[in-house]
Design a binder for these strands. Structure first.
Length: 949
RNA sequence: GGCGGCUUGGCGGAAUUGGUAGACGCGCUCGACUCAAAAUCGAGUUCUAACGAGUGUGGGUUCGAGUCCCACAGCCGCUACCA
């Protein structure tokens, strides 16, 4: 590789420029208070999602987003902004800990080594980061403030009336008891079934379960005492305050769906034969009530049975003696089932009758109470009223167990053959909105003992819902309820490599560690192996845990999310030891208040579009409520780059019998496919793109259609062996080529396959730019080209292309449309190549706009052709509008919408004369011959369309 | 099942508000240079011999549709018994 002749000497000048940017701190960002800070400059905060420094180093997916932000940052800087573009490390995490388990090496050592590799790689790509602001979530100086923020949550509660967090000191002043306060803290202790993984030795958040299961780890349900964060209090604000943000609609929707607001009602059902009643038949009035949540209170007249989750606390109480054995067996079976088994939709509904009955509050009817695992304890009240006619799941269940089905809604547009009476739904449930019927059933109102009647008949679903809720509320039988899917955030882990909770326990109470003692760091352990029991790893360090005054430390640690929830704040003031961010820095980087968010542009993978972004927004809102930050959102604009897939591969072909024969080895020299299992050569076929014909998702060889070759791009992965290492690309083609290629592949947000040939293409383009300025002499040295001359540009067409390029590149950068910007610069370069001579001034304009994309190459050329200073410090160029103007325009002439001819007219030609010219051309006459001209449409500067028939 | 996205040459993709479909790059073909090759430079390249046809399929709106509307199909992503 090293003796391969380079098309331009990037291997010499790229490291030199990187060293110079480092030494001169070219991309250092002045903060308020610094000597070189200029308050008049507007701020621009462009942020990358910081990486987890894994052992395998940078992946080509990383530079995709990083190059995009680097281009924006460099351009904005030259456009007069004070640009904050920092980088850091999300350095807590499981892999370093698992490595420690294997080797006994402290995770900090592994982490430091990995960070060094990542940093070297990032620098080799020439990114203009302000490395003075580098942060790592594992730094003691950072942990300290992560713990401090946790204590802010711990010492706050959510004031429902104000709709915001407030310090618990206010409650203490009001004389609240410790117990009352602990019940409302934003960080609280909760005993609940959680996802425990014995082999990882930790509890996982619901959201993380599938990820780790997928990697082959065991995850089971267990009731454990855990720390939780009360994010559910912010559910509504997390929806509402999303609205003004400049995020992709898809991501906003994803967050909204995750929070999952449902509007409905809570309805009370009286249990008519709970044990307490059975033992004391007179105590009917104090009978047990069970609340259900429903989004369709309008269907209450159609509720024919009730279902409780197997874990529902009243199951044991209401179950009759006859049903006890069956119920116990069912509950036990559900408890041992994994979530996966329970969630399997394809399986049949199961359930058991409890023997109990409930009274439907609207019609006094007695309905049976069942338990079934299709009702979840974690959502709503863990109990439902079943309306089989109007809910698919209830319908399926009722069918299976022979329960009554009563229709109470009919479609607004009755189906064909509808008689007007009730054809009980026999095929499917009708779950869409419609019109209420049978609510109440005919004649029923007269029989109501209290003379109360809730008549929904004839009302459309929305109105029927509202009326029913009002009716229930009036009688205390239920109330409107808004339910969210979002659950409180399980915040504790039992790992070693995470922030310890700054808390101690004494006599069953928890206490905050005093601020002066932060950061509270975990002690080194000799053995990092999980204990196998849910006891946190830190509990092994007895000396650390047991304090002289008899209290003990909390031994849980925080999840990896903790550090990434606020790192964007720390970059604004990374070394402040007195505050997590100074007031001045916060107020400057938060902006002028026109926009809710602090970060102007946030770029990072969509795998974080729900959790990380939601968690960071939650923390930011709490800090905002407590007066620590001025805006209520962290990220104004968010953008996620599309995944880069591996190179397209030829995977196999179909044999005569139609069976897929897979092969991995294609000998490109003789074009033979080798069968992977037998290793014998099956057939000789030359694979050549031109020989292939597309057919569905595979290709057919033109001369032998029986042989099919499938081309497919797949995710990069070690097991597939299609991972591209950025270091190799930089070695072979240079950093500028890698940067440019990743931006040229296609729209930033799109999923796209890697192509080595594509890298060669952009590398050739950069070489062409280089050769505009230099030519190689006999000695193999690059000397200034004779074509490049410091003379005024007399070539109007060339001047036009150059200024079009300045304009388009400027616009495209703002639109994040880098692929089209690059294409325009290629057009410009081709124009220079074909020109007689290269006028220096115009050539410099190209270098200026190419600079953010290919910073090394452009700086090198600039310096070698006598430029002073660095392009990076030059103001951004402006295009000359006059150069874009032309005297003549080419117009398209269409007849009936079809292109027939082209005409050239003066720029300011009158419409009438354009029409006359268009109608007069030979081709138009030919097309309109014998027809009547009905209409002539002239679109100025574009076309003429003649309508004739 | 639900929600979202996508579908344009041999390939990646362009067409910002409805106005020349296929920019730019890859690949391929031919030519120049070379003993030869690589590199480089130049010409060509949607399909079709041509008339014409053509942006997943069928319909609609419009002088004009890749772009807007309706229906359908295929692919990808997320989510999942959320009452």
């Amino acid at each position: 590789m090293s003796d391969r002749r380079k098309p331009f000497p990037f291997d010499e000048f790229e490291p030199a420029w990187q060293a110079r940017w480092d030494a001169e701190k070219t991309f250092r960002t002045p903060n308020p208070g610094d000597a070189d800070f200029d308050a008049a400059k507007p701020k621009f905060y462009v942020l990358d999602m910081f990486p987890y420094p894994s052992g395998s180093g940078l992946h080509v997916g990383h530079p995709e987003g990083y190059t995009a932000t680097d281009i924006i940052g460099r351009a904005k800087r030259r456009q007069g902004f004070n640009v904050l573009h920092p980088m850091g490390w999300d350095s807590f995490g499981l892999p370093a800990e698992q490595y420690a388990i294997k080797t006994g090496q402290h995770p900090a050592i592994t982490t430091t080594a990995n960070i060094a590799t990542f940093k070297r790689q990032l620098k080799s790509l020439g990114f203009g980061y302000d490395w003075d602001r580098e942060v790592a979530t594992t730094d003691p100086g950072y942990v300290r403030w992560t713990q401090w923020i946790f204590l802010q949550l711990y010492t706050s509660y959510f004031d429902e009336e104000a709709g915001k967090a407030k310090p618990i000191a206010e409650l203490e002043a009001r004389g609240w008891t410790r117990e009352q306060i602990d019940a409302v803290r934003l960080a609280f202790v909760h005993e609940a079934p959680v996802n425990w993984s014995p082999d990882l030795g930790t509890v996982l958040a619901n959201e993380e379960v599938e990820e780790w299961r997928g990697k082959g780890h065991i995850v089971e349900r267990r009731p454990l005492r855990q720390w939780m964060l009360r994010i559910t209090k912010y559910a509504q604000r997390l929806i509402d305050e999303l609205e003004p943000l400049d995020w992709p609609d898809g991501v906003k929707l994803l967050q909204k769906n995750w929070i999952g607001r449902s509007d409905g009602a809570e309805v009370k059902f009286q249990i008519s034969n709970s044990k307490s009643q059975i033992s004391n038949p007179d105590a009917a009035s104090s009978g047990l009530e069970i609340e259900v949540f429903t989004t369709r209170p309008d269907t209450l007249f159609g509720a024919t049975y009730m279902v409780l989750a197997p874990e529902h606390p009243y199951v044991a109480e209401i179950t009759t003696a006859e049903q006890k054995d069956a119920v116990d067996a069912y509950v036990k079976a559900c408890a041992t089932k994994s979530d996966m088994e329970r969630g399997d939709l394809s399986k049949e509904k199961t359930g058991v009758f409890t023997g109990a009955h409930a009274t439907n509050p609207v019609n006094g009817k007695t309905i049976p109470v069942w338990i079934a695992d299709y009702v979840m304890m974690g959502y709503g009240t863990g109990a439902i009223m079943a309306v089989p006619a109007h809910d698919e799941r209830d319908f399926e269940f009722a069918k299976k167990f022979g329960l009554a089905i009563v229709q109470v809604v009919m479609p607004s547009v009755p189906p064909a053959g509808f008689t007007g009476l009730l054809p009980p739904y026999v095929e499917n449930a009708f779950s869409e909105p419609g019109v209420a019927i049978g609510s109440p059933p005919i004649g029923w109102g007269l029989m109501d003992p209290r003379g109360e009647r809730c008549d929904l008949n004839g009302l459309p679903t929305a109105e029927a819902k509202a009326k029913m809720i009002a009716w229930l509320e009036e009688r205390g039988q239920g109330k409107r309820r808004i339910q969210y899917k979002l659950r409180d955030w399980l915040f504790s882990r039992q790992r070693y490599w995470g922030e310890p909770f700054p808390l101690t326990w004494k006599d069953g109470n928890h206490y905050a560690v005093p601020d002066a003692e932060l950061p509270l760091l975990a002690p080194p352990l000799e053995d990092y192996k999980p204990t196998g029991s849910p006891e946190p790893l830190l509990s092994k360090a007895r000396e650390w845990v047991e304090l002289p005054d008899g209290s003990i430390r909390e031994t849980n640690t925080m999840p990896q999310w903790a550090g990434s929830c606020w790192y964007y704040l720390r970059y604004c003031d990374p070394s402040n030891s007195g505050r997590f961010i100074s007031k001045e820095a916060e107020s400057y980087w938060a902006g002028n208040g026109e926009k809710p968010g602090m970060v102007d542009l946030y770029v990072g993978g969509s795998e974080h579009a729900v959790l990380h972004l939601l968690y960071a927004r939650f923390w930011h809102k709490v800090l905002h409520d407590l007066g620590h930050v001025s805006g209520n959102e962290p990220f104004n604009r968010y953008f996620s780059p599309g995944l880069i897939l591996g190179e397209m591969e030829f995977l196999g072909f179909k044999d005569a019998a139609g069976a897929w024969i897979s092969f991995k080895d294609v000998n490109e020299q003789d074009g033979t496919f080798t069968h992977t299992t037998s290793r014998e050569v099956l057939q000789k076929v030359v694979i050549d793109a031109g020989d292939l014909e597309k057919e569905n998702d595979y290709f057919v060889l033109k001369d032998d259609p029986s042989i099919r070759v499938r081309a497919k791009a797949e995710k990069m992965s070690k097991s597939r062996g299609n991972v591209v290492n950025p270091d190799d690309v930089v070695d072979a083609y240079g950093a500028d080529s890698l940067r440019l290629y990743e931006m040229f592949m296609g729209p930033l947000e799109q999923v796209k396959p890697w192509s080595t040939k594509g890298v060669e293409g952009v590398s050739r383009f950069l070489a062409r730019v280089w050769r505009l300025a230099f030519e190689e002499n006999q000695a193999g040295e690059w000397v200034r080209s004779a074509k490049i001359q410091d003379v005024p540009c007399t070539d109007k067409a060339l001047l036009k292309v150059v200024h079009e390029t300045v304009k388009k590149v400027t616009d495209d950068i703002a639109r994040l449309s880098f692929n089209t910007a690059i294409s325009q610069m290629m057009i410009c370069t081709n124009a220079f190549t074909q020109a007689e001579l290269v006028p220096l001034k115009e050539f410099r304009l190209l270098l200026h706009v190419l600079n953010p994309f290919a910073p090394h190459l452009t700086e090198e050329i600039h310096a070698r052709i006598g430029g002073t200073g660095m392009l990076a410090n030059e103001p951004w160029p402006q295009h000359d509008e006059a150069a874009l103007e032309t005297n003549e325009l080419e117009l398209v002439v269409q007849v009936n919408g079809k292109l027939r001819d082209k005409i050239t007219v003066a720029k300011d030609a009158a419409q009438a004369s354009i029409e006359a010219i268009a109608l007069g051309t030979a081709k138009v006459k030919e097309q309109t011959d014998g027809k009547t001209i009905r209409k002539v449409i002239v679109v100025p500067g574009r076309l003429v369309n003649i309508v004739a028939n």
